[in-house]
Design a protein around this nucleic acid. Structure first.
Length: 565
RNA sequence: GGUCCGAUAGCUCAGUCGGUAGAGCAAGUGGCUUUUAACCACUGGGUCGCAGGUUCGAGUCCUGCUCGGAUCACCA
């Protein structure tokens, strides 16, 4: 291959340097069949694609317009959920429930229900084939639900040709049906009916081919079991979860539906309470606002180093200074640290700040916020997490000192060892929602000290199932004291603590204009979603978690340097 | 980074003491055509993660590596 390209380019009399650049870039582009492996499965699919092209012209048409029987665009889920249709399905289900194993519902009942279904007229629905289409029946999925469609061999389903004018071919509906593969997309037009087994189906009058699946579908009973494939090829995992016949717990799709509901209900609750959503920089000149190692990059035009933000905290408080009394941001933070079942390099954090509120008010508000979003996302307050019943209707508040005394009474604590003792003995025991309060001031450089005890910060962390889910405090608003706390952090840094907080001079200037008393909080959204979906790993609640890049088969570390030239 | 576990057909998984590579689904051919993971018969499909080693003989035993998972340390 390489010699062929070389010969061509040399004949073109390109300069040697240009030749090298072009040749190398071409050689680095993988061939199509290196990306899509050829095997008996793909060969069969290619053959059926070619045969379908004969019948329909274009095998990748541009659109399919769905009907509006359900009151909006008829997705499969919406048609099945549409009240009058669901009612008929319930009626036949009640009849079927009274029948013996192989017994069929009485014809007169079925016919009467089918007459009612015919009154809805023509429906046009589309989806992916969930099984190979042997026989007359196949289920289509819209990614969430399945609906059965029926193609009658003799009844003469027509085929819609995709040649630009949607011409109708009255002969070939059945022939195209026979060429469909597991995973293909089709659109069908027809009428709703109930089968002999009482299942809602669409009787196809017109069939339109919409798109081909060139790769085989996952196992319909087990989906994708390999965690690596699930995470690298989330699309394949999602397909598998939509095709799967039986499953325990939530499907992958359902996990991300819960995630979406959680986030939208958090937003709604904050907005209902007067909070304004803002967006602050993701690329920041200083990585501060939290204790963590940052990702570093460079801006060429400005010729400055920038850091992916580790927290939006200091920007949000600048906005409190500026008069946003209630402000929130719900977005990604980036931390250049280890990957684990509860750590991803980028993770989603909800941070919000409320002027004139203190740490206790913030805990009250946080409780209500969590309760509401858990209810909206899961339908209840009690969540089963890995065998523990986590009850979001009750939140306990315990001082760090009392917590250590409760779980490790044998340990004598003082200011120097209390955090270590807490981490070692207490954290993993905090299953039910628990606010740990009274943190040492020394590890809380942005928190206001307690009026009662100057060594204690007005700060809490919320623990659920042994995981830190939220962190909040009364915000330190004395610019001079904040400056001194930063200075202490910088000397920690000089002593080798890479994660000690960085001084932000502009933030000191902002505070100097005056910030009202305020409380703030950060809530780890991924971890909250883990709890609500009973997932052990953060990678199961992030669509595309970070992984080491894939290495192709046979690819060696030295690239192609060893090949003959 | 340490420790432990895993990688076998497109997918899900068996593979005993080291002795010719297996099943279900998926695919192909034929039958059937109101089925519920449709069914019946037949057929094709493998670099057993990669590289070495031991052995007459390695999916199996040993070493190294790659990738993944769990866990510990750090972190939210």
């Amino acid at each position: 291959m390489r010699c062929v390209y070389s010969a061509i380019f040399q004949r073109c009399l390109l300069s040697q340097r240009r030749l090298t650049i072009i040749r190398d870039s071409i050689m680095s582009i993988p061939a199509y069949n290196e990306i899509i492996e050829e095997n008996d499965q793909t060969e069969a699919r290619l053959a059926s694609l070619n045969a379908l092209r004969e019948l329909v012209g274009n095998t990748y048409p541009n659109k399919f317009v769905r009907s509006n029987v359900s009151g909006g665009e008829d997705t499969i889920t919406d048609v099945k959920a549409f009240g009058p249709v669901a009612e008929i399905v319930d009626e036949i289900a009640a009849v079927v429930a009274t029948l013996a194993e192989r017994e069929r519902p009485p014809a007169e009942i079925k016919d009467a229900l089918n007459e009612r279904l015919r009154a809805f007229g023509t429906v046009r629905i589309a989806g992916r084939l969930t099984t190979p289409p042997r026989g007359n029946f196949v289920h289509l999925t819209d990614g969430i639900s399945k609906l059965q469609v029926y193609c009658d061999k003799k009844g003469g389903a027509a085929l819609i040709r995709n040649d630009g004018k949607d011409t109708l071919d009255p002969e070939n509906g059945w022939n195209a049906w026979k060429l469909l593969d597991h995973g293909d997309f089709i659109g069908v037009e027809g009428y709703l009916f109930i089968t002999n087994t009482g299942e809602l189906s669409v009787h196809i009058e017109k069939l339109q081919f919409l798109a081909k699946a060139m790769l085989p579908m996952p196992d319909k009973m087990h989906g994708i079991a390999d965690a690596e494939i699930r995470q690298r090829q989330r699309y394949y995992d999602l397909i598998g979860s939509s095709l799967q016949v039986e499953h325990e717990g939530l499907t992958t799709r359902e996990v991300f539906e819960v995630r979406a509901k959680t986030i939208s209900s958090l937003r709604r609750f904050l907005e209902d309470n007067g909070y304004v959503e803002v967006e602050t920089p993701m690329l920041t000149p200083k990585a501060t606002g939290a204790a963590a190692k940052p990702f570093k990059t460079h801006h060429n035009a400005l010729d400055i180093d920038l850091y992916a933000r580790i927290a939006p905290e200091l920007y949000l408080k600048r906005l409190v200074v500026g008069g946003f009394e209630k402000v929130y941001e719900l977005n990604r933070n980036f931390r250049n640290e280890g990957i684990s079942y509860k750590h991803n390099p980028e993770f989603t954090m909800l941070e919000f700040y409320c002027a004139y509120m203190d740490v206790n008010g913030m805990m009250d508000f946080c409780e209500e916020l969590m309760r509401q979003s858990v209810l909206k996302a899961t339908g209840g307050f009690v969540v089963n997490y890995e065998g523990n019943q986590v009850d979001f209707s009750k939140f306990e508040r315990v001082t760090m000192k009392d917590a250590v005394a409760r779980y490790a009474p044998q340990v004598a604590v003082d200011d120097t060892n209390i955090v270590a003792a807490f981490d070692e003995h207490v954290e993993h025991n905090l299953i039910q929602p628990t606010f740990i309060i009274d943190y040492p001031k020394s590890i809380s450089p942005l928190s206001k000290a307690s009026p009662e005890n100057p060594e204690i910060a007005e700060r809490f962390e919320l623990f659920i199932n042994g995981m830190e889910v939220a962190n909040g405090f009364s915000e330190l608003n004395d610019p001079k004291e904040q400056y001194e706390r930063f200075v202490d952090q910088m000397s920690e840094r000089e002593r080798g603590d890479e994660e000690a907080m960085v001084l932000d001079e502009d933030y000191i200037r902002a505070l100097s204009y005056g910030m009202p008393p305020a409380a703030g909080i950060g809530i780890g959204i991924d971890r909250l979603v883990m709890l609500l979906t009973n997932k052990h790993s953060i990678r199961d609640v992030i669509l595309f978690p970070h992984m080491r890049p894939e290495k192709k088969d046979g690819e060696k570390d030295g690239g192609d340097a060893g090949e003959a030239s």
